[in-house]
């Protein structure tokens, strides 16, 4: 599979000269499978340039996997070109809620006063589907979604193809209430999604000092991201969901800290940046 990061900023799009190296678009990652299927992880503002890059050449079917409904993960969906194409089969998967289906939860974003066009008037007539509790197949990949620790219904995803696994947990606070270094792995939120992954894209929004002031906000410190990656045995940890207030220079400091910590951790630790690609 070919993976490309279109947005890795957390919380709020943050364009500007101080974020130009790692980028200011919010969460979006494209996954092109070996059979040509296109999977898109999250629909933050990064999905807009993805849609533009696809132009008219997009596949007939596109599957978008939303981790949760915080604005920075769905704000771009309305500006994703293929959604306006009546010929596209667009499936939007998202976290199950005990009360309401995904469609009714997303519909307010496609209605006044937040948006001028009602969801029912979107030409592609997207199908909204709650993620299943078991692994399912999309094209040539096996996809697994599991609820993870983050305020409100939130899932992480694992996409597996040809023996390689991409784990995507952009908003995740596994250390909330748990000592990640000692607790049994079965009690670590998101562990099964990340276990033995080839590439793990994981929340690392805060420095340790920032996290101590924001416990319960749903995000991880650099330290916790590295510990989680080490416990999960991820081959390559990519720190994701950068804080909107972190400049490129500050992010370099985050990376330096992560590398210090990862002496006994994942083989590789790096920072997600717009335009970054992987081939798994």
């Amino acid at each position: 599979m070919k993976v490309r990061v279109w947005g890795c900023r957390g919380s709020l799009a943050s364009p500007g000269p101080e974020t130009v190296r790692f980028g200011g678009q919010t969460s979006c990652v494209s996954v092109q499978l070996s059979d040509g299927s296109l999977l898109i992880l999250d629909a933050g503002s990064g999905i807009r340039p993805l849609g533009m890059a696809l132009g008219g050449d997009h596949p007939e079917r596109i599957d978008v996997f939303i981790t949760h409904l915080h604005t920075d993960h769905i704000e771009g969906l309305r500006f994703f070109d293929p959604i306006w194409d009546p010929s596209v089969e667009l499936n939007v998967w998202g976290p199950p809620s005990p009360i309401r289906g995904l469609r009714s939860r997303i519909a307010p974003y496609f209605a006044p006063p937040f948006f001028p066009v009602h969801l029912r008037s979107i030409p592609s007539h997207p199908e909204f589907r709650d993620t299943p509790t078991r692994t399912w197949r999309i094209g040539s990949a096996a996809v697994t979604a599991q609820l993870v620790k983050h305020p409100g219904p939130t899932v992480g995803y694992r996409v597996e193809e040809n023996g390689h696994a991409l784990a995507y947990l952009p908003d995740h606070e596994p250390a909330l209430g748990s000592d990640l270094s000692t607790v049994g792995t079965e009690w670590i939120s998101g562990f099964a999604l990340a276990e033995g992954s080839t590439v793990l894209l994981h929340d690392a929004q805060y420095t340790k000092a920032e996290y101590d002031e924001r416990v319960g906000w749903g995000h991880s410190s650099t330290e916790d991201a590295v510990t989680f990656g080490r416990r999960a045995g991820a081959e390559r940890l990519v720190l994701f969901h950068h804080d909107p207030l972190h400049t490129d220079t500050q992010l370099e400091g985050v990376l330096a800290r992560a590398k210090e910590l990862s002496a006994s951790g994942p083989d590789e630790v790096e920072l997600a940046r717009e335009g970054m690609t992987f081939e798994l």
Binding site: L147, T185, E186, W187, S189, L193
Partner: peptide
Amino acid sequence: HPQRNLILI
């Protein structure tokens, strides 16, 4: 390593 349901965690 089976995963516990998040609600149990």
